[in-house]
Design a protein around this nucleic acid. Structure first.
Lengths: 345, 345
DNA sequence: TTGTATGCGTTATCAC
DNA sequence: GTGATAACGCATACAA
């Protein structure tokens, strides 16, 4: 492997000049030409390890995610990667499994590797960012809020939960349950708050037993939905506050033979009316479903489901752009960006 | 940040002894105790950049994947990550989009970063591994074969394609189409060969116009399936050789209002019989579907679909284990491991 | 502008 | 077994 001295010799200059030439520092045009020619002929590429040691910072950023198997986060990753690559920086993907210990370990690695920055969708609400911040590393929180005062780019989660719920209300549903994620996850909490707000706006109760905190995964949401279906009276619709939650809910409905209802039947507006006198208000009718997010791998049966679509790739791209700014030295107070959301689908 | 000299001073030894103590080299027990104590008190962690520079190899491995948004590959990533983490090595995820140029770029980065090794599911059949191999870096190909003579862990793809097809044959289907991936991808080619073999074994023709090479993605497979549904006579079943292909096929069927058929009707065994005299042999009947792989995010409507399940996580774990062996210095000829496959589902 | 010389933090080599 | 010291490959302070 050619090293910088080889290029220097071949170009007839010093290593310092090679370094400067290759890093865009002022160099006489003819020498620059000689250097780039020599580098090209030798197929020289700088050793990034040595460069990192010297610069005390590498061209790598960490992307810390709670679940790489969730299409939402892989889309975030794509967004981050797109802009990072455009800036010549590599992305290390770190999967925390929503586990604070794993997360802490990865953040330590990011520090020991002298990575330039971190984009994090935090497992815990209080990730161990202090050492990184002390070292003046760039940090951007994405999707989920964190305790530290760092750049943050999220959706308007309350609005998302509200939109999903209002959509169901508009379709005539009244007894609307909510399947959300962990209490430690801001998105889960805020979207559930949106559900609560929408019901309150409509003058409806939002009883605690219609709110189930699960884990934002398929199996958990599935179990939560099954439990909801056993409630008496059964809810006539369910809001899933994330994509995998939606999958779990749809599976539960399918298992129980409850079809997805695009809208409530006319009589449902009457609380204790005719519908309740049979085996319960929803025993034979379908169940409304609203999902915050998308199901990119759904196999077709989502007719009647109300989606509040998100663009996680765009979210990731926005976060990465903010990170690049910080890496380039931008020194302003922490920014909070709320990503625009498309209309209901 | 504490450095190795700080630990040395505090423990009253030289930096060399600290290094040895922390790396498990022989050191007098009392000194070892002093060093570990000092390191703990200071919260010292070695700078991995400096270590990499000196050792000429880092504790990071690259995982080069064609599509991080494909659940199959994220599962592979999980498997790789699990064993890598157990060995104290971090995993850099690189997404090539099945693009040879992007792939080459990432491989160059792996080299410049002095990464310890690479696990690759190659975009092209001939990835640019030569520089890495010349530098004596560990390389393991996973899922997809490559031209270079490196360790390889795959499924028995011909058997997979054959199993999917035989399953459909056993259910009575006869005119079975195949939607597979790019001609440059070994899995796509081999599974299609399995389809061909199974038909030949059954004494049936495998006409070229029933084999569609797509891109292993949803949209591509969808379009391919739509085209197949327009054939006259229409195929009575389709084999999708990967998971996303399966999604695309199922969506196409749903769009066209063609139900998934768990088995062919009795008369289908007769080539030019009664079924053909109407609007075509399959115009009203359903269509059989077999999928190599799984649909972790299917929302329920996969009744009747024949799955040939895979365990990509296990595949990734196996590849990572081989990589770890190589990194630890194992020096044997390239190995070819064919991963066991579960029975039909 | 350019070259020389030093340092980044660690591990490996050499004497002891 | 231990300590002093020289690398690893690059970027920069300083001198020219």
């Amino acid at each position: 492997m050619p090293r910088i001295v080889d290029v220097a010799r071949r170009a007839g200059v010093s290593t310092a000049t090679v370094s400067r030439a290759l890093n865009g520092k002022p160099v006489r045009p003819e020498l620059l030409a000689a250097v780039t020619a020599a580098a090209a002929e030798l197929g020289y590429t700088p050793d990034r390890t040595a460069r990192s040691l010297r610069r005390r910072s590498s061209d790598v950023v960490a992307l810390v995610l709670p679940d790489v198997e969730n299409p939402f986060f892989t889309a975030v990753a794509r967004g981050v990667e797109d802009v990072a690559q455009a800036h010549g920086v590599s992305v290390v993907l770190c999967n925390t499994d929503d586990d604070a210990a794993k997360e802490a370990r990865y953040l330590a690695v990011a520090q020991d590797e002298n990575m330039a920055g971190v984009v994090i969708a935090a497992a815990s609400g209080r990730p161990a960012l202090a050492p990184l911040l002390a070292r003046d590393r760039a940090v951007v929180a994405v999707d989920r809020a964190v305790a530290d005062d760092v750049d943050l780019v999220t959706f308007d989660n309350v609005a998302l939960g509200r939109a999903a719920t209002q959509g169901l209300l508009a379709r005539g549903f009244r007894r609307i349950a909510c399947v959300t994620g962990p209490a430690a996850t801001s998105t889960a909490v805020e979207r559930a708050q949106g559900w609560r707000d929408a019901l309150a706006d409509a003058g409806l109760p939002a009883p605690d037993d219609l709110l189930v905190r699960s884990d934002f995964r398929v199996a958990g949401a599935h179990d939560a939905a099954v439990a909801l279906l056993d409630r008496e009276p059964r809810p006539d619709a369910v809001v899933a506050t994330n994509n995998l939650g939606g999958v779990g809910v749809l599976r539960a409905l399918a298992e129980r033979g409850v079809p997805v209802a695009a809208s409530a039947r006319a009589a449902d507006g009457v609380p204790a009316g005719a519908a309740a006198e049979g085996a319960g208000s929803g025993d034979v009718a379908g169940c409304g479903v609203a999902i915050v997010g998308d199901l990119p791998f759904a196999t077709s049966s989502t007719d009647g489901v109300l989606f509040v679509p998100l663009d996680p790739r765009d979210l990731g791209a926005a976060a990465a752009r903010m990170l690049m700014e910080r890496i380039r030295g931008l020194d302003v107070p922490a920014r909070r960006v709320v990503q625009r959301v498309a209309a209901l689908a």
